[in-house]
Structures are given as C-alpha cells and as structure tokens.
Design a binder for these strands. Structure first.
Lengths: 218, 218
DNA sequence: GACAAACTCGACACTGTGTTGATAATATGG
DNA sequence: CCATATTATCAACACAGTGTCGAGTTTGTC
C-alpha cells in the first residue's frame, strides 16, 4: 500500500536493509521454519532472529505471527484464484475440463506451499482473523461452485436434486479435507497422484448423477 | 484402570471429594468452559479453579489440558461408535438405511457435545496426541466404509470405479468437514436440519452412480 | 546541517507453564 | 486405635513467551 522505501543508491551499500526487505525476510523465515516445526512451536523471537532483528522490532512490521501467516496465505490464495479464473474464462463450455483445471491449479499452488497451507488450517482453528480469511476463501469457492451447478441444471446437463448451494458446500469441504490431509502426509490420506482424479469423479457423480456431462458444443 | 477410591461411608460426609469425583469435575469444567471460550483461551488455572483445586493439583489428575480434552473426546467417540455398531448389526441388508442410521448417530452424539468436538479439531491441528486420536477414529471409519463399498460391489449392487479406499477417504473427509462446519456455525455451512440428507445423497451417488441400491431381499 | 520520518532495541510488566518439596487427609492392618 | 503407607494438596520457584514504553539511531529531504 504505502510507497516502498527507495532502493539503496548505486555503489553505496545500504547500512540497513529497507523496510520492505525486512518484511519479506520475516515472511520467508516463517515459511522456512514451517518446513521443520509446527506453527505454534515457532515463537516471535524465532521470526525476529531469522530476520536479523530484535523482538520489539518485529512488532514494527507485523502485529503478531498470525499476521505473517495471513500475509503468506494471501499470496497463495491469490495465485491459485488467478490460475483458476484463467481456466474458467477459456473453458466455459466444457465443465468437466474446467473442473479438472481449476482443481489442478489449487492442488498445484497450495501443494507448492504445503507447510504454509497446513499451518493455515492449524492457525485457523484458534485465531479468528485467520478463520475469517479461510471462510471468505471458502465462501468464494462455494459461490462459484453453486453458480456452476445452477448453470448446468439450467442448460439441462445436470438433473435437479439437492439445493445447489448445499451440494457445493459439501463438495468444497471434501476438497479441503482431502487435499490438506494429503499434504499433511498422515493416514488416512489419498496418495497425491490420485487426489485430483478421485475428487473430480465424485464431483461429477454428485452433480450429474449417472450421466456424465457433454461439452456444450465443440 | 486402578480400582476407584471407595465411596464415602454412609452417613459420614467426606471431608474431600474423592479423586474420581475431582477428575470428573475437571472434565465437566472444561466442557462447560468450552461453551463460551475457545480451547486455547482456557488456561490450566481455569480448569483447576473450576474444579476447586490449585494448579499443581491439576497435574496430579491430568498431564495437560489436551489430556482432559482427549478424555472427553474418547467418551463421545465410543458412544457414537457403539450406536453406529448397533445400527450395522441390525441393518446389514439395507445399505442406504444403514448409512442414514450411522450418520444420524454420529450427528447426534457429536452434535450433543459440539463444543468439545469443535475444540477437538482445533486442538488436533496443533497437538500430536489429539491428532493421533482423530486419525485413529478416521481410520476406523474409512476401513468400515471401504469394506462396505467393496461388499456392495461384490454383490453387484454398486459399479466398479475408484479404488474403494480412496472413495471412502474422500467421503469421510467430507462428512467431517461438513458436520463440524455446521456445528461451528460459521458460513459457509449447511443448515443442521439438512446436513444428514445432503451427505447421504452424495454418498449414494458417489458409490452407486445413477442407480440407487436395492435392499438385498426384503 | 537540521528536522522529521522511519526504524531499532534494552528493559520492564505480565500471563501462563511445569516442577519441587514440604504438608495434610485418608486408608489399612496389626 | 495408632503407626505407616498411600493419596492428595498447594506455596513457591524457575522459565518461556508476549506485548509495550521510551529512549536511541539511521536515513531522506529541504
């Protein structure tokens, strides 16, 4: 938001890293510590040390460690959303294909930062702000899925049945639980190379019943 | 395990509550505090105060607040499992009916202690012991569902398709996410009076495709 | 080269945890 | 009915982490 501090002058080494560099360093420290410890085992002092600053200085940049996590999650969510939006625009007429692309995008971006994702669900349990972020993300996905289901019903490709929003909520919850349990690597979980296929199969059966959707017109 | 302390003699009021009563009192204190605060906002001192003892004395009974929660969860899980087992024995030939009864049982028992259930998922995120308990519970459900799906396929009622265990894992994850988000009462969530119906519909479509199962023989 | 803004941290007060060691209540069995 | 083992209790301590205050130091700007 605020205009970033100017980059250091050419040829003259800055005495101190700029504020933005520090902020980024804190984020990176958290992400890298999360590879080896769980979120609540990481103290603010760990983050400060990792970024080469003292604990009070940490508070100059973030108000809590949850805020750092939130900022990491924000980045991942917007990357995944962007990829999914791109798929949607291109493939509006082939729902099954779109589903696969969108799911693959989420799998890819959250999987690439699995430690952060898993920490997000951990912190979301206890912290209202993190929980609110997750709920907003879920709500966006649910809304998109609901709209998709209603559109397919309207064009006659999918049968009527459960309220579209209820169905969407259930399926989104399934995705979340399945993906994150796969990322967390504890049993029971679906092997990562099947996950997307399993989810898609269930989405299609739940939405279309026995009749797989035809592409609208090729 | 250890034989319980004798009940106080008739007519003679015990100076102190017995150990077992205290233990139970601690459990009740946690459950009642969970109605109004989240698990991590509750301190060991709160539990001790609630049970009328000092903090060190708390450690005589439990080694941590997670242990208290674990003990509450154990109770709920075994109640729900018992109810579900009872349904299974009686209704082996009518799978859809069994599914409804089992799900209703879980909905009922976990819903009756929703604060504890929600705290369980919260604590499970951060605490290995709690997480292990959940995973064992999930594993048991997944195994049961896998066996059920395979049985239905063997008798020709359900079509082949996804590996039965993968399908089971996905559906169990869905149940968990959907039920607990309904209990937690935050959006997006399915209204409590639809939850079981929505879940059953998806289970049936995912397992049987377009062809709803017939009872074996009436 | 002085002034404001951005940034930094030592030192403090506070909250919660887990342990130790001394003490009190109760049960048991000679 | 009293010795003695067991069970139960807690004051006091050492510690780890949090969040804030106020006094300092850079750094950009005019």
């Amino acid at each position: 938001m605020a205009p970033p501090t100017k980059a250091p002058e050419r040829g003259r080494r800055a005495k101190r890293p700029t504020g933005d560099e520090r902020e980024q360093l804190i984020r990176e420290t958290l992400e890298s510590l999360l590879e080896s410890k769980s979120f609540h085992e990481i103290s603010i002092d760990d983050l400060a040390k990792g970024a080469g600053i003292s604990r009070p200085t940490f508070y100059f940049y973030f108000e809590s460690k949850e805020a750092v996590l939130l900022s990491l999650l924000d980045t991942i969510v917007s990357q995944a959303d962007a990829a999914s939006d791109a798929a949607q625009a291109a493939l509006d007429q082939n729902p099954a294909r779109f589903l696969r692309d969108a799911l693959t995008a989420y799998f890819h971006y959250f999987g690439a930062h699995r430690a952060v994702s898993v920490a997000g669900t951990e912190a979301g349990a206890g912290n209202p702000k993190v929980r609110t972020l997750w709920n907003q993300v879920r709500e966006r996905w649910v809304a998109a899925a609901t709209a998709g289901i209603e559109a397919e019903r309207a064009r006659g490709a999918a049968p009527e049945g459960l309220p579209a929003r209820d169905l969407a909520i259930a399926l989104i919850n399934m995705n979340e639980g399945v993906l994150f349990s796969a990322f967390a690597g504890e049993q029971p979980a679906i092997a990562e190379d099947h996950v997307v296929d399993v989810l898609i199969d269930i989405w299609l059966k739940a939405i279309y019943g026995g009749n797989p959707p035809e592409p609208a017109q090729t």
